[in-house]
Design a protein around this nucleic acid. Structure first.
Length: 516
DNA sequence: TTAGGGTTAG
């Protein structure tokens, strides 16, 4: 690049940055046109910037066009495109671009791993990380940024043993002073059920920012320690750290899991009045969840009516979820009517409404909603549970007939069930929302994925070792009751992370206090 | 000169 052209390139860079800043489409198109007319659109530096610009304006196709027209595609142009697809959740496109790259550096690998980790593909993230570790090129060794995404993947899978290996790598490579890395470690340990280790890692930090504190608050919240989460928040304030909007989402979530309605209401008020934070949809959704779970559905609905912003799917989703828990047909209908308009392709909403009808015995309505679901070509997400044994993740679904150990697991569960029935366990067959006979229902609940994972854990872990199970949905009442019995009967400590929170079973009691 | 990262959401 010649010297005199530098200012012009820089001018265009500033113009593009200003379009991003003001998110102005008209200006963006104007700048792009000028750039083209002056022959700057083949400059790879500016092409990268243009991709970023269109990406920030949510214009994927325009960004792609810039890429396609750029003849000199540097290591930077490709990375910008991978990152854009990652941002929009287009994992297949991102990986296609990544695979096309002849030269990949640490940023390329990190961007692709982050893409998988952020878009619910944690297995793929770990797989790609292992591949990256086998590369010998100088510029491909993982760094702190890579570690953060890998830790997120471990957290998503509750892969504690893998996470510990990564922790070791972080210590050996001196990455343990970098704030994002430590915050990700705190979250990883908390989400893998090791709250005490999360606390130790946090205690060992010499410097903490608001995100480090938020990580700890949400960790305690997810484990049901609402009061402790509030205490941590108070400690943070007394250390002179200002709370962020996320601090309050975490706190309200913590109150919700622990049923701390009054504390939650007070925090919501304080957020505005004392800390000047304007509540966003996430805060409203958390409040609706807090009230709804506590069976204050009227108040939750009124809270929505009084909102100063448009409620949106998260808020209505919270109301629907609570209505399902408390089997309230009226509010479930109200929320789902809105949700079917706002997010017609979300199968979960149809399932929640159908389940509410089923529990209320309204079988004609159940049929109607299931038909609606089918007519829209949607499918219910199957329940899945998994468990890590010797660094291997074993995954279970209730209908898994290909699992080589399935016969053994079923036999063990039948044996345990009949023995526990003598000690007072009563199968909660009402959770089976089909018009079936009692025996059939009992057979179905005994085949739930969480119980298969539990049986697998009983066979494959030592006596002293706790069992850690992760589940993609909310824990059902029968699995909850069954696991409580097992924890006493088999004298086993069992940790289950469901989609919302942790259940810590010990000696026949669960840490959630049967409120979840 | 450019690119990748931490906390929340049910």
């Amino acid at each position: 690049m010649s010297e005199e052209s530098n200012p012009t390139q820089r001018t265009y860079e500033h113009l593009i940055l200003s379009c991003i800043h003001q998110s102005s489409l008209v200006d963006a198109q104007w700048v792009h046109r000028h750039l083209h007319e002056n022959g700057f659109d083949q400059d790879p530096f500016l092409a990268t910037k243009l991709i970023n610009m269109y990406s920030s304006l949510d214009l994927i196709d325009d960004a792609r066009k810039v890429f396609d027209k750029t003849r000199k595609r540097t290591i930077y142009v490709y990375n910008a495109l991978v990152d854009m697809y990652a941002k929009f959740g287009c994992v297949a496109y991102a990986s296609a671009v990544f695979n096309q790259m002849a030269v990949k550096n640490v940023v390329s690998w990190s961007a692709m791993i982050a893409c998988y980790a952020k878009n619910g593909k944690a297995f793929e993230a770990l797989k790609l990380f292992r591949e990256m570790m086998l590369k010998t090129e100088e510029d491909v060794g993982p760094n702190s940024v890579t570690m953060v995404s890998v830790l997120q993947a471990c957290a998503a899978l509750a892969a504690l043993e893998q996470g510990k290996l990564i922790h070791g790598y972080i210590l050996r490579n001196g990455l343990d002073t970098i704030l994002p890395v430590i915050s990700a470690l705190v979250t990883m340990y908390a989400r893998c059920g090791k709250l005490e280790v999360a606390q130790q890692v946090f205690d060992g930090m010499d410097k903490r920012d608001v995100v480090s504190w938020n990580s700890l608050i949400s960790g305690f919240g997810a484990h049901g320690h609402g009061k402790k989460a509030i205490d941590i928040f108070k400690d943070m304030i007394s250390c002179g750290i200002s709370p962020s909007p996320v601090s309050f989402v975490s706190l309200l979530g913590a109150c919700s899991h622990a049923g701390l309605v009054d504390e939650g209401r007070a925090l919501f008020q304080a957020m505005r009045k004392e800390y000047g934070i304007i509540p966003s949809v996430e805060h409203y959704a958390s409040m609706v969840d807090l009230l709804g779970r506590a069976n204050k559905l009227e108040e939750a609905a009124k809270f929505i009516d009084d909102m100063r912003i448009e409620p949106g799917p998260k808020v209505w989703g919270s109301l629907l979820g609570s209505s399902r828990i408390h089997c309230n047909v009226e509010f479930a209908e109200r929320a789902s009517t809105k949700l079917f308009q706002l997010e017609p392709a979300n199968a979960g909403n149809y399932v929640l409404l159908a389940d509410t009808y089923a529990e209320a015995g309204k079988w004609d309505e159940v049929k109607r909603v299931k038909k609606l679901l089918e007519s829209r070509g949607l499918q219910k997400v199957p329940g899945r549970s998994w468990i890590e044994v010797k660094r291997q993740i074993h995954s279970f679904v209730s209908t898994d007939e290909f699992n080589p150990q399935i016969e053994q697991l079923h036999a063990l569960l039948c044996e345990l069930s009949s023995e526990m029935k003598e000690k007072g366990y009563v199968p909660q067959i009402k959770v089976v929302l089909y018009d079936l006979g009692e025996e059939e229902k009992e057979r179905i609940v005994l085949g739930h994925s969480e119980k298969l994972a539990l049986a697998f854990g009983l066979i494959n872990t030592s006596n002293a070792e706790p069992i850690r199970i992760t589940k993609n949905l909310r824990l059902c009442e029968d699995c909850h009751s069954f696991t409580k019995f097992i924890s006493k009967f088999a004298r086993k400590e069992i940790l289950v992370r469901d989609v919302n929170r942790f259940h810590h079973f010990r000696d026949g009691v669960c840490s959630c206090g049967d409120y979840w």
